[in-house]
Design a protein around this nucleic acid. Sequence first.
DNA 1: GTCGATAATGAAAGCGCTTTCATCCCTTTC
DNA 2: GAAAGGGATGAAAGCGCTTTCATTATCGAC
Lengths: 333, 333
Amino acid sequence: MATKNRVPKLEDVAERAGVSPATVSRFYNNPSVVAPSTAEKIRKAVAELGYVPDLIAGGLASRRSRLVAVLVPEIAHSIFNDTIEEMVSELSRDGLIVMLGLTGMDDSGMPKLIEAALARRAEGVILSGIVANETLRQQLQGRSATVIETWGLPEKPIDVAVGFSHEAVGTDLARFLAARGYRRPHLVVGNGVRARMRRDAFLREWAQTGRRTPTKSDVEIPTHFGHARMVWRQVMELDPKPDVIVCGSDLLAQGLIVEAYAAGKRVPQDIAVVGFGNLSIAGEMRPTITSVDLDGARIGREAVAVLRRRAAGEKIANRVIDIGFRIIARESA
Amino acid sequence: MATKNRVPKLEDVAERAGVSPATVSRFYNNPSVVAPSTAEKIRKAVAELGYVPDLIAGGLASRRSRLVAVLVPEIAHSIFNDTIEEMVSELSRDGLIVMLGLTGMDDSGMPKLIEAALARRAEGVILSGIVANETLRQQLQGRSATVIETWGLPEKPIDVAVGFSHEAVGTDLARFLAARGYRRPHLVVGNGVRARMRRDAFLREWAQTGRRTPTKSDVEIPTHFGHARMVWRQVMELDPKPDVIVCGSDLLAQGLIVEAYAAGKRVPQDIAVVGFGNLSIAGEMRPTITSVDLDGARIGREAVAVLRRRAAGEKIANRVIDIGFRIIARESA
DNA sequence: GTCGATAATGAAAGCGCTTTCATCCCTTTC
DNA sequence: GAAAGGGATGAAAGCGCTTTCATTATCGAC
């Protein structure tokens, strides 16, 4: 038999079912137009042959790649993971696959990955953070792919952005702590753009209170549990008696709580701690951690929703989608 | 100009550079054969046009998809993340992209994702865990894609497997604890196949010592920090005086340490704790956590190495690659 | 019974590349 | 100086699908 020993193709199915290739193609892409009896014959032939459509060939012909690129700095300790998880499952529901790209914490891998995505004619490119490089912005703008920047809220998005305002977080956090009566905060700031935006807004707002200027220390991003020892030492050097430490992540906050206990201090009685991200541990730690809740999964959902609307040919009116955030007051501050 | 307002294609570059399409194709796929002066002309044309090759079309013609599918249960709290991260960066170095698929903790999404991967003619399919479903195994076996099962060590891999022996972990852990003089362990077991393999091996080995049969409790996988409260309660009910708790993950171990402190017990003096996975927190927690080190990144590297050797046409002699594991003794046990 | 719709299908021309085979021209080599 | 070899390029035939356009069959409606 001619079809032995090779991967069956559309034509083989057509022949076996006694129809034309066009009809088999319609069976897959537009099933409502094929007659039930014909469909049944095709289904049978497909099963007998073990046929799996070649989406590469299909993609070329239809110029639909069914591919969405998701580019993030890293995933090992990432706060983006909820977002990615949500996107991947939502997208695969639509028959889209996601190409995962790791840009590195400094985004150095981004240009190559964007090129790779465009070369595959990705229908969407979802980026974490906003793209700084002007050349890249242009390159992305010229293409038909939907480009979604997430987690930040640029004034002028390349295409669409969904995230929240880091400035607003900083401001609100300052107000929140001021209202609770704290007077000597220490800020632990990750050395990334976003963390700095929050810090600056915090300091600006804090200055309004007329209270002591907060001490600050820097950590590498991604900030995590292991930074705590070093940070603790640094904090104590700069100000042995801060009343609250504001962290760039819940993991770091958790680490500091452990350090505080190891140093014989109680949280929050002797020193308070605030996290960021509202990871599940924030609600599970002892004491539970006061944090800023960002609905990562929601960012993912909204991003996918935008993609869907684009696919449906809708115009996207609101190009900057603010999902907001909430300060969750718990035991630690 | 004819090339205005549309995405330039290979032919446009060829025309502009004054060469044939074939030569431009060679410029990309086999640059060593094109004359330097010609290459320069092409480079110039590419830059002027902003040409990006269409890898979909290229893939169809060359029947190379340059796509590797990576299928994992989830990524939000995953122990696989180091592996994924390593694979993604290694693969993108080779110009391969990775399609990330989430199968769900029960692997229910696997069949569809495998079909999607095959439909895109993925060159490799990397699975976490071993595939139980026989139909799926067959489907995978028939294709030319390299299939790599990771984290487990099946007796008869579909194609290639890289991981470690969960039985050996259980056995070694039992010996390790016995040697340290522990007499009343409690086992916290995730309700997954792999965790159960470790447990059974542990119990078998422990029985040899003639000591008290360990108490056990179950948790949902993925096991994490938040399970600790419930587990702690359960442990205390089953045996108020265990001398060591053996956990299915470092996160859970960390949670139990926090619980122990909250209950006024010292680790390891009053109760010891052992983790699994050797996440970075294991070495950073206070006390540092005794754990089982599995080099997740190495699994990723080995998997990619296999893919490379296949791509180079090499035969893979060793179809089961055991990367081993090490028990890291730290403060907590 | 005829006509226009409508539904179902087929024929064929691509989609934008890769690759085989052939060609041409320039070096070597004796 | 001719033959042989090799390097660089071009022509053209696909890769396995999709989709437009045309065709045929079917069905009411008048």
